[in-house]
């Protein structure tokens, strides 16, 4: 668990604080997406959690441990840190980059080698193909994957991600997001995820923390934020199409009616797809329902009726 209590940061030489009295809790196993315009203080918050920036006042805890009482280098080795692609060390090979923190912690070489192979495979890379390469020889997507692998190297319970998928094209970004969410399902890390993209925040965050001008404006689940925006700033940030967005952030598995395993007939979607995707399949093929599969296994059914009811309910919540 990550906890911030009344944290304020004023940078030297600056009149106004970058972060003003922010209190925030990220529960274990949850992703908290920090979102807001540039200069809103979201990155500063992230960097206070691993003490790259020291708070001016307030306290920060990781699993009830006051981080100001921990040696910063030791603290950082226990926190996965993913930043844009520049974060890879250009003079080190992929293998050496991933092995960075295990080496700092003096793992035996055999174990490091195994771990590197395991991680590269987990993030979807061909170990033999990339391990000896240098960052300049990689594509943007590969760099981001290696950034994630490096952060996961010593299996830290807490991860900080600063626009980790920011520097790749939209298609690759979507794929990386999906892959990461899939990993997170098994890893259950406690994650702070900074982004300026509200759609990314909606997709990645179990909770979303919206920042503006150093203040925490609203903190809640994506659904809460869509249903009850705290003020006009949040409304603007969320955009006009709140109803469709709601569908985009609910997974098919959450709405579907469970069904005995059988063979997939007709149109099907994956359990982890968004309800919006299921709606699109229905519209495209002019059908009233789709089969829901997990990999190849049929696990349920999602009907047009269910979707309609869900949107209506959420809409009336938003209205009230």
């Amino acid at each position: 668990m990550i906890e911030l209590q009344e944290v304020t940061k004023t940078f030297p030489g600056s009149g106004t604080p970058a972060v003003k009295g922010v209190s925030l809790q990220v529960k274990s196993g949850e992703i908290c997406a920090l979102v807001g315009p540039s200069g809103c203080g979201k990155t500063t918050i992230l960097r206070m959690i691993n003490r790259l920036v020291e708070p001016s006042s307030g306290s920060l805890f990781i699993d009830d441990q006051d981080i100001m009482k921990v040696n910063p280098d030791h603290l950082r080795r226990g926190i996965g840190y993913v930043i844009q692609q520049i974060g890879l060390l250009p003079h080190r090979t992929v293998e050496e980059n991933v092995a960075l923190v295990p080496r700092l912690l003096k793992w035996p070489e055999g174990r490091i080698k195994e771990r590197v192979e395991e991680l590269l495979e987990k993030v979807g890379l061909d170990t033999d193909e990339v391990r000896k390469k240098y960052p300049y020889q990689l594509s943007g997507g590969q760099m981001q994957r290696i950034g994630v692998a490096r952060a996961l190297a010593v299996d830290p319970p807490v991860m900080l991600m600063d626009e980790p998928f920011g520097a790749v094209d939209p298609i690759v970004r979507l794929r990386l997001q999906d892959e990461f969410l899939k990993l997170q399902q098994s890893f259950k890390k406690t994650i702070c995820f900074v982004t300026h993209d509200m759609n990314e925040a909606m997709k990645m965050g179990d909770k979303i923390a919206i920042m503006n001008g150093g203040f925490l404006v609203q903190h809640g689940t994506p659904r809460e934020i869509l249903a009850q925006p705290a003020n006009s700033f949040v409304e603007d940030l969320v955009g006009e199409d709140r109803g469709v967005k709601l569908l985009d952030l609910v997974r098919v598995e959450a709405l579907m009616l469970p069904r005995e395993a059988g063979t997939a007939n007709g149109r099907s979607v994956q359990a982890l797809d968004s309800a919006k995707k299921a709606l699109e399949v229905m519209l495209e093929h002019n059908v009233d329902g789709v089969t829901v599969c997990r990999e190849k296994q049929v696990v349920g059914i999602l009907t047009w009726e269910t979707i309609k009811t869900y949107v209506h309910q959420a809409g009336s919540e938003a209205g009230g």
Partner: peptide
């Protein structure tokens, strides 16, 4: 590049490292 140095710092390298 200071961003690379900072990335290293974020990984937990001491100033000597």
């Amino acid at each position: 590049d200071p961003r690379v140095v900072e990335a290293g710092q974020g990984m937990g390298l001491s100033s000597w490292q």
